[in-house]
Design a protein around this nucleic acid. Structure first.
Lengths: 129, 129
DNA sequence: GGCTCATGTTTACAAGCGTAGTCGCTGTGG
DNA sequence: CCACAGCGACTACGCTTGTAAACATGAGCC
């Protein structure tokens, strides 16, 4: 079962996400190249990256194209879609689905810098135009 | 390790979070009362809730006070702190720590309703005052 | 042609999670 | 006094995750 043939996007774990970020930044890449980009930061071995890549392919979050005997890996989903899904999950789970509540929370917690606020004001102005 | 004596807040899983929400809404409560509030919605048995409560106590996310032979459970962390932690994690992981990026994303994805936008404008005005 | 290197596949294994059953204790109604 | 109901503690068990080693295989080098 799990998700062999249907299009249900299986959930990507945090470690897997780190690999996806690398692929979104640059693709296609071999496993070794992915490792070059993430192994040091996360303290991983190449073997770990290989496992994660396999799992991502199994989850249909990444695709491969043969290049001789090796594979070149590419993301199979757009980053924006992933980010969107995760954002919505958070807003749904913690803010009753109301993005404004998230914003209010950030503001109350003073997680917003002067710069953030200015930026958001500018965005709002743009939306309004 | 884990977090016996130190104050490191161990991560709360999704199922556990559902229980925490119940406790935040109303506390203290017995395991049975918590079940009344969440079992139906999640299709859980009382046993499941008991397990989750134990784990939450172990993680020091909830506390108990004896009431005769049973326990009354209460949250040991403020909801706002949990929400804040999760929000920041998301912003850090997906938006490079810039809340404005999250906001921009939401705006681009049209996840913001007219109402949301108005609300945020109002909040901004308040901050500015 | 054999050895080594790169690379995907298989296997491993502990910790965490979701879900729940069973055990043991004790206060209570009869 | 005893069976029972209620309750926490302990045990269970399959799945996912993080992390990686072992294995197989093809390719180039000497």
């Amino acid at each position: 079962m799990a998700d062999s043939e249907n299009g249900k996007p299986e959930r990507i774990s945090e470690a897997e996400h780190a690999v996806m970020e690398a692929l979104w930044e640059h693709s296609p890449m071999t496993a070794a190249e992915v490792c070059d980009r993430v192994c040091e930061a996360r303290g991983w071995s190449l073997a770990t990256v290989k496992t994660l890549l396999s799992r991502l392919v199994a989850k249909q979050a990444a695709t491969t194209q043969a290049d001789g005997r090796r594979f070149l890996y590419s993301p199979a989903m757009a980053r924006v879609d992933y980010v969107d899904g995760e954002s919505r999950r958070l807003v749904d789970r913690l803010f009753g689905g109301r993005p404004a509540s998230l914003f209010a929370h950030l503001a109350e917690q003073e997680a917003l810098s002067e710069h953030d606020i200015t930026e958001i004001e500018a965005l709002l102005k743009e939306i309004r135009s």
